[in-house]
Design a protein around this nucleic acid. Structure first.
Lengths: 302, 302
DNA sequence: ATTCATCCATTCCGTTTATCAATCGAGCGA
DNA sequence: TCGCTCGATTGATAAACGGAATGGATGAAT
């Protein structure tokens, strides 16, 4: 049995007329008669009761008509679906986020995509370091990464969407909390809450800032992420240096201050260079509008 | 696109191996490659990512695999369904019942069929006179009739399943209610509640019984059916002569008494002689056991 | 590094079969 | 009774499906 049999039978059953059905199907009537007969032979059931004058649909035919129509429309919708996937209009894309980016950028990103490509589902993976995201972009478990350059390896393409300065997070009752602007050198004597990640780009930028300011920070406490880091700051265990986007994470007892002379960190969209997924390409194309490229980073220190 | 394309693709996608899939399908590998390629060309979407060493299923292919599997199993279940209909194991059969038979015989009939052919649905049409049922058996709006012979026309076959005497229904406070047995002649002076149907076989039997007993009944009130007739009897408007099966309709204020010398009426299963419906045939075959043929009626009076 | 084995794609050819044109035969209506 | 309509039948044609042989690429093994 082939779909042809179903298509032919459905047309005949709907018109109750071999001649007109053949016309609709753009085939000759004998071919239609033959094919429908073939279907009935294979099923072993009479679907149509033919007299030489008219055609009726048997109860079995009535049932099979419904089934065949369902099958045909399932095929049709399946074809449409797979074509939409082929065009990248439908499907699931896994997006990885570094540290605070999930809080600062995910809302805008999700809302924009929901509006532009509503049939695209997002699966968010948060708190992923750059290296982890690169690896997952390579093995396909991520389609798009929101990470902090630089990336390792040349098979990952990326586009910087934001250059953000590091800012200071201090307990609300801290002496620096009332200063309008704080200089990096002011942190020389402060106990610093830092990230515990060895591969954290932000962590490296923090250390570089201190080194540029001429001191090595006291890293008394370490946190596995920005949220935890801010919690430790709120607890008065020290001050923190975090990307400006951490301001999206207001936490009682923590205030942010601009940090003069601090390094900047970049945020970028990243993807595998040979992305075979049209879905990822579509989403990336949409995100060109949503997150325009930021100016190439002003290299502060090498 | 044909089911063949779906079958081939599903097998390849499930095995991720053209060679083994071809083996499973009992075709050569080149034919399989060609057909799957043809499917992809028609869809305009790559379903499989082939290297010369291995085959992977693309996300689009993953989706289409599911759709194709659903389509194929829908076809399979459709085929099974239509074949069961062809065998008369599945479907809807419309059964007509005369007067009280719905109450007296339908419970047993429905329960027996639910057990023997559970996939057969019944649609009950009650309170149909013999002539109406014959007509509807002819035009197909009934598959089986439970009626009272004789039937009109020779294209209706029937089988008597019960021969029941007429019995007397009287108000509980009626003088005859206490008699153990009543003779038809005792009704000579009684106002009789009768059926209003001109074509009612029971009505004719009642009149014949009276005539045989030598009197013409006073038909003061008429009811459109046995239930209504008994209600009138309960109201004290007269006595009624009804088939014994009316005893299945206990009604407060009405008692039944055997009626010596009364005629009998038959109850029969009836069907159209050239029933093309295997369902009706199956049900009739099952009903052979459930309702064995009654002895041919002992002709009381001509 | 070279060879071997594996696996999918390509080519070519034969057979199946789907289709068409012409025709037939059965009913129904005039 | 004649003619019309409609589905079935017949015979021919072309498209297709499928098979055997082959090619080409890649990974594994020696």
């Amino acid at each position: 049995m082939e779909l042809r049999h179903l298509r032919y039978f459905v047309t005949v059953a709907e018109t109750c007329h071999f001649g007109r059905a053949a016309e609709q199907l753009h085939i000759a009537q004998p071919a239609l008669s033959h094919t429908v007969r073939q279907l009935e032979d294979e099923l072993g059931v009479a679907l149509l009761a033919r007299t030489t004058r008219q055609v009726r649909v048997t109860p079995a035919g009535e049932f099979f008509l419904g089934e065949a129509q369902r099958v045909l429309s399932a095929v049709e919708s399946g074809v449409r679906g797979v074509q939409r996937i082929g065009e990248g209009q439908l499907g699931l894309v896994r997006v990885g986020f570094t540290g605070t980016a999930a809080f600062s950028h995910l809302p805008h990103l999700a809302r924009a995509l929901a509006q532009r490509v509503p049939q695209v589902e997002l699966e968010v993976h948060a708190e992923l370091l750059t290296a982890e995201q690169c690896e997952q972009l390579r093995d396909g478990s991520l389609g798009i990464g929101v990470l902090r350059p630089p990336v390792t390896g040349d098979d990952i393409d990326y586009r910087v969407i934001e250059v953000e300065p590091l800012v200071l997070a201090v307990p609300a009752d801290h002496r620096l909390a009332v200063e309008p602007v704080v200089a990096t050198t002011d942190l020389r004597a402060e106990p610093l809450v830092t990230y515990d990640g060895r591969n954290s780009v932000v962590h490296a930028a923090v250390l570089r800032s201190c080194r540029d300011a001429g001191f090595t920070p006291h890293q008394q406490h370490q946190a596995p992420g920005t949220a935890a880091l801010l919690a430790l700051v709120a607890g008065g265990l020290g001050v923190g240096v975090v990307p400006a986007s951490a301001r999206s994470l207001p936490l009682a007892g923590v205030v942010f201050r601009d940090l003069a002379g601090a390094a900047t960190v970049e945020l970028a969209l990243a993807w595998h260079r040979e992305t075979s997924s049209p879905l990822v390409n579509t989403v990336l194309a949409e995100l060109e509008d949503v997150f325009p490229s930021a100016r190439p980073p002003a290299e502060a220190g090498s």
